[in-house]
Design a protein around this nucleic acid. Structure first.
Lengths: 180, 180
DNA sequence: ATCCACATGTAAGCGGTTACATGATTTA
DNA sequence: TAAATCATGTAACCGCTTACATGTGGAT
């Protein structure tokens, strides 16, 4: 049982889903490819944490829809009480920042302009996710006993983070320009 | 040449350092253990990106001090011009957030209180790093053509990020309390 | 006497990415 | 007819972590 396994159990506990669906739901908060998810789901099913039923679709390929078992649900609850690992953050841009003095201003500037553009895309994505969520539950889901609360605070965190990163990029670009 | 390799070259380019020293310098921005760094430094030396000299110390064990070669420096400059990978962020707390509805308020609350405490430690660390840097160069190093600039903007980013994460934790705790 | 910081290495195993593989249906 | 989305899988490889291994010198 690694962290991704708990993550998958947690998503399935909210709503039975296919592997493909879980991959999409997980992407914004935990980057994992289908090649990692499918074998892990199979293992979780074999070990009795998940069930699945094969669902036939006419317009699309058939899919395996997983549901959580009682064993899975109690495993999740125990996990919540155990110590939480520190987050891992790795950004190539950080390492490049150390080398800015080796290059010219335009190269340096480009690094942060490109990152700014990337963050703007993410910002739009998260904002529409949040709008969707607020529409889905008539207002803001501020009740911690509902499944939507988790999604709500995570989207809020994502937005805060992206906005601050955008501010940082713009601040750096200004500094680069100031001395030009 | 993976990302960590460029990171090591970048640090050595600023100042010749030992593997142990590089590990410490790198920690705040790229988590890497000595078991990964030492073999990589040896490989970079074999491939001609780095040189090293054995430095004898009386009060401490001897060390290998690495310096960058011309080949290493030009490799770094080329790297700066190539596309930058997206950052990777993985936090077990995000996955636990999805499961808050499965547990009681006190368990939920504890998750964010513990994280808040962790961020406060980081905040102190980054603040003292920044104070050190400002002392080392008489004021704020806002000139992008100096090696200190990179460190300055990275520390600034770290502080922004930690402060925003702290705000988020407190906001979540308030929400949890509000409905209690 | 014990623990911590400094200092460098190797080996095993896990987690994650990239690539290989297949195939249906819809949209441009 | 080419590309994109949906859908599921395997295999090889790389990057990172954990554990094993060794040794010095200073502080408590």
């Amino acid at each position: 049982m690694n962290t991704l396994a708990y993550g998958l159990l947690g998503l399935v506990a909210r709503m039975p889903s296919s592997g493909y669906d879980l991959m999409l739901q997980l992407q914004p908060f935990w980057q994992a490819k289908h090649s990692q998810i499918y074998p892990l789901l199979a293992k979780l099913e074999q070990d009795g944490y998940l069930d699945f039923t094969r669902v036939q679709q006419t317009d699309r390929p058939d899919k395996k829809v997983y549901s959580i078992t009682e064993k899975g649900r109690s495993t999740l609850r125990e996990w919540l009480d155990r110590p939480t690992s520190d987050p891992v953050f790795r950004d190539e841009l950080s390492l490049k920042a150390y080398c800015l003095w080796l290059t010219d201003r335009s190269t340096a500037r480009k690094l942060f302009e490109e990152r700014e553009a990337r963050y703007l895309e993410h910002l739009n994505m998260f904002e529409s996710f949040l709008a969707e969520l607020e529409q889905a539950c008539d207002g803001t889901p501020e009740d911690p006993s509902t499944p939507n609360f988790g999604e709500y605070i995570l989207l809020s965190r994502g937005l805060r983070s992206i906005r601050e990163e955008l501010n940082w990029c713009r601040w750096v670009i200004e500094l680069i320009d100031k001395k030009a």
